[in-house]
Amino acid sequence: MENFRLYWEFHKSTLLINWVASIALALLTMTPLYFPIATMTGGPFISLFYKEITAKNEYYFYYNRGISKINLMVVNIILNILPGIILTYIVLKCQAS
């Protein structure tokens, strides 16, 4: 549970960049469906790349609790998939109606 809270904090710290990038893609292509898809695919990678460039040292916060970078990244991607699938379903439903 303690570790999940650390994973969750890391995930939260990546959401802003992920969502901004995903919204930008949806707006630029005028395709709403790209937003949820991007939050599960390109968004997390852009966000993790941004963190790697600007806040690489913050990974030590997690290392000191026994959490590796690869674990943070995998959990981050997993945590983006569930809301991404729900959002995709909602967008598809809206488009169908």
Partner: peptide, 20 residues
Amino acid sequence: YKTKNELCFLPQHDFLPKHL
């Protein structure tokens, strides 16, 4: 470091996440 509570490390530069 992957074995919890064995070692902690203070790096040269700040490591606490700025958003916290």
